[in-house]
């Protein structure tokens, strides 16, 4: 059986200095994986390079054993919320419907079935009562949920999420994580760029530590340790107690 995601020797550089260097890893099925690392570690870049949104210098990516071009329909993507202008003339349901576009193909319009499906996805993120609200009238957390619902509408088997927890309140965060757990229990693979080290243990069964190079990937209990985190954050990390207490990332 092919792995949901295999990355070999991936290197990405915007200028001369690489943003990601020689990344190789494999992801097994049905894991909820947190991608963790300091600012500028290349977390978002990794997702974008895997999805071929930005060119990579070397390396190849296989999703379910094939190139991304062939497996697009099995991949769901949640970009950063700030990446779009929310004052766009459309409503929440319409944005979720965009998740169906990849399945529709050229010139075809979404039909009733797609609409019903989109509505269902909105319902899953608890947003069905906002279906016809203009998207700029939604709060940050609601916008994030709409993006999540759009990814659900893609009916994917592997999901990439770029900082879905940024700028959302605690209730939304809990709702999102419950949904991610549900996806995982359905055997889907979810990769999430994550910032808050305090919730890592609670949320993810696997983590990927990234700082330009891949520091490590594997079960959270194995990798979420003082040694590994200090390797990732380069000494700018203070852990009060390696087991339970909050983690502080202090300025260099």
């Amino acid at each position: 059986m092919a792995f949901p995601l295999t990355v070999n020797n991936l290197t990405v550089a915007y200028q001369k200095k690489p943003v990601l260097e020689d990344i190789s890893f494999r992801v097994p099925e049905g894991k909820l994986i947190g991608i963790i690392g300091p600012n500028g570690a290349g977390k978002s870049t990794l997702i974008k390079a895997i999805l071929e949104l930005i060119p990579s210098i070397t390396g190849d990516v296989a999703i379910f054993g094939e190139s991304y071009k062939k497996t697009r329909k099995r991949v769901g993507y949640v970009p950063q919320r700030e990446s779009v202008d929310w004052d766009f003339p459309t409503d929440a349901l319409d944005v979720v419907m965009m998740g169906r576009y990849g399945h529709l193909g050229w010139f075809k319009r979404p039909d009733k079935k797609d609409k019903a499906h989109a509505m269902e996805c909105l319902d899953q993120v608890g947003m069905s009562q906002y279906a016809h609200r203009q998207i700029s009238q939604l709060s940050g957390g609601q916008q994030q949920r709409v993006f999540l619902a759009r990814a659900l509408a893609q009916d994917a088997e592997i999901y990439f999420m770029d900082e879905p927890f940024v700028g959302v309140d605690a209730a939304t965060e809990k709702a999102i994580i419950a949904l991610l757990m549900k996806l995982k229990s359905q055997g889907k693979t979810v990769l999430v760029v994550h910032h808050d080290l305090n919730t890592v243990k609670e949320y993810f069964d696997w983590i990927m530590l990234l700082n330009v190079k891949l520091i490590g990937i594997g079960p959270t209990e194995k990798l979420f340790t003082k040694d590994y985190l200090q390797k990732t954050y380069g000494g700018s990390l203070t852990m009060l107690d390696s087991n339970t207490s909050p983690i502080i990332v202090s300025p260099r």
């Binding site: 999805l51 071929e52 949104l53 529709l104 010139f107 075809k108």
Partner: peptide, 16 residues
């Protein structure tokens, strides 16, 4: 449909 997606979210458009 394509123009709408390209105008709203070009990154997502490229992704699909």
């Amino acid at each position: 449909k394509e123009f709408k997606l390209l105008s709203f979210d070009p990154g997502f458009a490229k992704g699909i």
